[in-house]
Amino acid sequence: MPLLQCQQLNVRIAGQSVCEQLDLSIEPGQCWALLGRNGVGKTTLLHSLAGLRPIHAGNILLQGRSLATWPKRERARALGVLFQERSSAFPSRVLETALIGRHPHLGPWQAESSADLAIARRALSAMELSDLETRLSDTLSGGEQQRLALAAVLTQDPALLLLDEPVNHLDLHHQIQVLTLLQASAGAGKAVVMSLHDVNLATRFCSHVLLLHGGGDYECGDASTILNSATLTRAYGHPIRQISHDGQRSFLPL
C-alpha cells in the first residue's frame, strides 16, 4: 500500500495554481525530490501533503485513508514535517528540542521515558550534535539548528518524512551525510519527500522526482527519466546542460 497518494489534487495559493490534477503515489522505500523555481509552491505543496493547509480539490490519502480523517496525534506518528522556518518564542535546550518529536507518542500526563530519551539521543548522535545536548538552541549556528530540527523529525520517527529544504545552511560534509542517512532510512522502509535546490544532490540521492513548472503544470516519475537537460531547462527557465563523468550524471547551469 502506498504511504501517500494524491488523486486529482489541486493546490492553490493566493490565486496562483501550484499543481492541477496531481496524481502521485509514494511507496515505502522511495526518496522523492521536489524541484522547481523559487515561488513555484514547493513549501505550499509540502504543507498541503502534511494536512496543514486546505486543498482546493482532489484527495490526499495517508496509508490508504483520507488525510483529513486522521486524528491529529495519530497522523503525527505516521507523518513528520521539517519546516524551512523556525522561531521559538523562548529558548530551550538542544535535548529538549529533539524530544518534541516524542510528543505524538506520549499521553497527556505521560513524561518522556528513558526509551524516549534514548531515541532522541540516537537522533542527536546521527546529526553529530551529541556534544551540544545542554546548549540553548538559540546559541547554535544556522547549520547546527538545521541539524537539530532534523534530529527532532528523526526522533518523531514517522513512516513518511516531508522535508522542506533539509540541506539548507548545511556545509558540504553535512549535506552528504544527511542525504545519505535519509536515503538509508528510505531503504529501511520509510518514504522521504524533500524539496531541494541542488539538482545534482537530487540526481545522486533521490529515486523519484516531482518537478513543478508553475501554473499548475508538473512532471513526476523516476529520477532517471524526469531529470534531463530539457525538463530542467524548462523548469528553471535557464539553460542547463547535462554532463556525464564516470557514469554519474551532473547538470550544469550555463
Partner: peptide, 23 residues
C-alpha cells in the same frame, strides 16, 4: 497541566505544533 506539553510546542510556532499533533 494535562496540556502543558502542547503549550511547549505552541511556543515553537503554530505550524510546528500542528505538525506534531497539537489541536
Amino acid at each position: 497541566l494535562p496540556r502543558a506539553r502542547d503549550f511547549n510546542l505552541l511556543a515553537r510556532g503554530e505550524l510546528q505544533a500542528a505538525a506534531l499533533g497539537v489541536p
